[in-house]
Design a protein around this nucleic acid. Structure first.
Lengths: 169, 169
DNA sequence: CTTGGAATGTCAACAAGACTGACATAAATT
DNA sequence: AATTTATGTCAGTCTTGTTGACATTCCAAG
């Protein structure tokens, strides 16, 4: 806290955006915005026996079909046991298929079925619609800044995962 | 999905930032960045018998001392039962004080004790440090864009709460 | 080849933190 | 006096995270 104010004061107005008050605003903006970010998919999923964890699994399987359980749990940042419960229900319900790896039979490769793709698309559409409205209101320069700050906020390994996904498409 | 591409194509390069792929990147950026955003306070809290819910309560009591339980649960977007469990432990442990309202004796006004302020500051410092590093890396224009997009992403009532907090200081 | 360790995934049990519903109390409002 | 509002509490459930124990498969060192 003292350091931030010191830094800001040292350089005057030029670093006004680094004051504690500005940082606090940013923290609260993240908190409230993330609620909006998850609100639409959450609404769709309530009533089905699924939750946010299922949405995340569907999302990342969709964007890297054939990925392994291990890959997925690194991306999602949860334990394999936690992921497994989610995957089991998705597989039982015919939304995800699990195939034993051909070269390494310990691995399970995950893909979405037709039904899985349909649900993923429904969730994704809702989330993208909110994102698109926000982007449109804010304009392209704001969007560029938005991504720059988010990327800088990630842990190093998460940034690596993010960039790998981004560039892999 | 088709609509977004349609929109982008209709106007050409000018709306490139509204393609599905761009939106998808934004979604993943939010996901990974939020993990970073909460990582430091989570690390501090693990081992204490507190969690993210306690952090949020401390944060918003700190930034609006004397706020009521009802205010707080609207801001936090949880039920009173859920908030009450958290507040009870914080009060028992002497981090939060609850005072009966002088004008309306049904209300309980919440404030942080010395110890509560100390913990809030520790958590806040960690979170602000990450925020400050991200802001510094990204620069002031990016930060402005970041806030613009986040604000546009909130639900209307959350944006109202955010702006009220912001302007109330 | 065999054996032991590493990697991968599954099952079971538990904890945190959200939820709902029902109910109690006290104070304010009509 | 009756109703509404603000708060607190108890009990039970659900999602989603955790650890621990275990089975299977692969690979490498003896």
């Amino acid at each position: 806290m003292t350091e931030a104010q010191g830094t800001a004061h040292r350089s005057g107005e030029a670093l006004l955006y680094l004051t504690d008050e500005q940082l606090r605003q940013g923290i609260e903006a993240m908190f409230f915005a993330y609620r909006g970010f998850t609100a639409d998919p959450d609404r769709i999923l309530e009533g089905m026996s699924y939750g946010r964890a299922h949405h995340r699994a569907l999302h990342f399987i969709q964007c890297a079909p054939g990925t392994t359980v291990n890959n997925l749990l690194i991306i999602l940042g949860v334990t394999k046991q936690s992921l497994n419960r989610v995957l089991r229900t998705l597989i039982e319900d015919g939304l995800v298929e699990s195939h034993v790896g051909r070269s390494d039979k310990r691995e399970r490769h995950l893909t979405l079925t037709e039904a899985g793709q349909a649900l993923e698309r429904e969730l994704s559409d809702a989330q993208r619609m909110r994102m698109r409205d926000a982007y449109r209101k804010a304009g392209p320069e704001a969007v560029a800044g938005f991504k720059t700050v988010l990327e800088a906020m990630m842990d190093d390994d998460m940034r690596a995962a993010y960039l790998a996904l981004r560039d892999g498409r």
